[in-house]
Design a protein around this nucleic acid. Structure first.
Length: 278
DNA sequence: CCCGGAACCTGAAGGC
DNA sequence: TGCCTTCAGGTTCCGG
């Protein structure tokens, strides 16, 4: 599932080959992926526009266009973007293509999505996306003091709060579990109950986990691929995420899996003390 | 504001 | 073998 590090990797990979190029056409095979304006309108308005910049905000990919509008994509759970040459007939077609964006570079950008939950929007003002998201966890403005203040009003399990995009942007199921392991905090702890020291550890853990994953081009468990088709490498470094039944790399205790807000949550019952869980 | 649950999707996995 | 159910999880919407 693409989270912040995966989307960051995709943006970095895409940047050199799409920035400065022009969209030549759009083919939609799953028009319902377009949230707004309408599928027809997006197909009319996108062609001819130059991509000034590709950026990431939370888990959103943002293509800033010369008209001032932005094409905003979200991969949700199984979406991926692939870049290929228009005359490349050798590579096998993914059976799950939901959209093809033609570029004047001779390449095309494929949106592949097994479960068709991914979305595309053409919006006038990017601040629309910005306003509904919490701070970027790697931004210097996201400090331990701010984290502590935000946690203080939250009663929900810390795991659920970390996955809330309005709380902090870009963290999903995998990296929330990893960060809590790094910080030795049990996923069910009420957010407000974290001590100052624990909050500081969590802040550091969030940054370490995300930075390391970016260095390793993201984690591939199922559908995530880089635009060139390569998988990520971060999955090999995970301590708890998707490691149910295996043993903790630190203390050899079996990794447990419990539901938190209906999300599969992995943790080490020994390293992540539950003494102060309510 | 905060919280929890349903809906959106469909391939994979497990039960019988 | 094959049908059926359940699970996976990011986001949005809705009700308390």
């Amino acid at each position: 599932m693409p989270e912040l590090p995966e989307v960051e990797t995709i943006v970095n990979d895409l940047r050199p080959s799409v920035e400065g190029h022009r969209f030549t056409g759009v083919s939609l095979f799953w028009p319902r992926m377009v949230l707004r304006p309408s599928a027809d309108e997006l197909c009319q308005r996108l062609p001819g526009q130059v991509i000034k910049e590709v950026a990431r905000r939370g888990k959103y990919l943002i293509f800033r266009l010369d008209s001032g509008e932005s094409l905003v994509l979200h991969l949700r759970m199984t979406g991926s973007l692939r870049l290929r040459s228009k005359n490349d007939t050798s590579s096998e077609l993914s059976p799950y293509i939901t959209a093809i964006f033609g570029l004047d570079s001779g390449q095309e950008l494929l949106f592949c999505d097994r479960r068709k939950l991914g979305t595309a929007s053409l919006i006038k003002d990017v601040s629309e996306i910005d306003n509904k998201l919490g701070p970027e966890p790697l931004d210097p403005r996201f400090t331990p003091v701010i984290l502590r203040k935000k946690l203080s009003s939250r009663k929900a399990p810390i795991k659920a709060v970390l996955c809330d995009q309005k709380f902090v942007a870009g963290i999903g199921n995998m990296y929330a579990d990893e960060a809590l392991f790094y910080a030795n905090i049990h996923p069910l702890r009420p957010a407000y109950s974290l001590s100052k020291a624990e909050t500081k550890r969590l802040h550091k853990a969030i940054r370490q986990v995300l930075s390391s994953a970016i260095d390793n081009a993201g984690a591939t468990f199922s559908d995530y691929r880089r635009p060139g088709g390569e998988p990520g490498r971060q999955q090999y470094s995970f301590y708890v995420a998707h490691r149910g039944g295996q043993t903790c790399k630190v203390c050899s205790t079996p990794i447990e899996r419990i539901p938190v807000r209906n999300r599969g949550t992995y943790f080490c019952p020994r390293c992540q003390d539950s003494a102060t869980c309510s």
